[in-house]
Amino acid sequence: MPEVIFPGPEGRLEGRYHPQKSKDAPIAIVLHPHPQFGGTMNNKVVYNLHYAFYNMGFTVLRFNFRGVGRSQGEYDQGVGELSDAAAALDFLQAKNPNAKHCWVAGFSFGAWIGMQLLMRRPEISGFISAAPPANTYDFSFLAPCPSSGLIINGSADRVVAPADVEGLVGKLHEQKGITITHEVIDGAGHFFEKDHMDTMIGSVDEYVRRRLTENTR
């Protein structure tokens, strides 16, 4: 998979870009967990989400936020990281102007950034939020949430209490015009360790394929 360097708001950003042969393939970006707690684009959840989307026929980009790996800049409390994600989507769209659909996927901190990007970019037609940190960050900006998507977390998550995710989902369920699908992986921790990773990726695969089929009818 080709390594790419593309311009970000604070200098270059480092990514991994995995194109399809089809020029009108859907596109997806995958966002990594918190930069100050070891989060990188090579995190196992991010890596597996990346390949899940690629195997479903998406052209996919994952990248390091500012200050991570070879990406320039410094951690910016999520504000700059949102700008990085927007720059990544710009780069992906410029390379794929004929893409049929655009999705965003994020894990933990990346899920929070992804949901903010969703609010700013109406072309995003679906999202995956894995273990969104509803206990740490304010998600009230999702008013209303503009797209349907999947929120997925583990029942044994000790970083983000399942009850906090349930509360976020409950608020989103009150909104009209979108469908929020919520799946809880029984026994899984925050990082979907061991066999839980395959279960989580299987759920994502099933959800995204169903959405794509619905959109082509």
Rank of each mutant, 00 (worst) to 15 (best):
T199Y: 05
G177Y: 12
A28W: 12
R211W: 14
H101S: 11
A25H: 09
K176L: 04
G167Q: 14
S147R: 09
F191E: 03
G114F: 11
F58P: 04
G11K: 15
Y17W: 08
G189V: 02
H34I: 03
S125E: 09
A99F: 13
W112D: 01
P26R: 13
P146M: 14
A88T: 09
P19E: 11
E10P: 00
D90V: 07
Y207R: 13
I5T: 10
I152C: 01
D198Y: 14
H18G: 10
S22F: 12
S147W: 07
A87Q: 11
G114L: 07
P122I: 12
K100N: 07
S148N: 05
V45W: 14
A143K: 15
E81V: 15
S155G: 03
F6Y: 10
E74R: 13
P33S: 06
F141H: 08
D90C: 05
V46R: 07
A85Q: 07
N43R: 10
T216C: 15
I201E: 01
D84M: 03
H190A: 09
Y47S: 08
Y47N: 09
R158V: 02
G78S: 10
G202Q: 11
D195M: 12
E81P: 09
V159Y: 08
G126E: 01
T216A: 15
D84Y: 04
R70D: 05
G73N: 10
V68Q: 11
R158I: 04
I113Q: 06
P144S: 11
H32D: 03
L49C: 06
I124E: 01
T136A: 09
G177N: 11
S203P: 02
D164I: 09
I29H: 12
N96P: 02
E183H: 14
A143W: 14
A161E: 11
V4C: 15
Q175K: 03
G170S: 14
M119I: 04
Y54F: 05
H173P: 01
E174F: 11
V184M: 08
F65R: 13
V165G: 07
L13N: 01
H173T: 08
H32A: 07
T216D: 15
P146I: 12
R16F: 13
P133H: 08
A131S: 06
L13R: 05
D157S: 04
E14Q: 10
E166Q: 06
V208G: 06
G15W: 15
I27C: 00
V4G: 11
A134Y: 09
G15T: 10
Y51T: 10
S140G: 10
E166C: 00
Q20A: 01
S148C: 08
P146E: 03
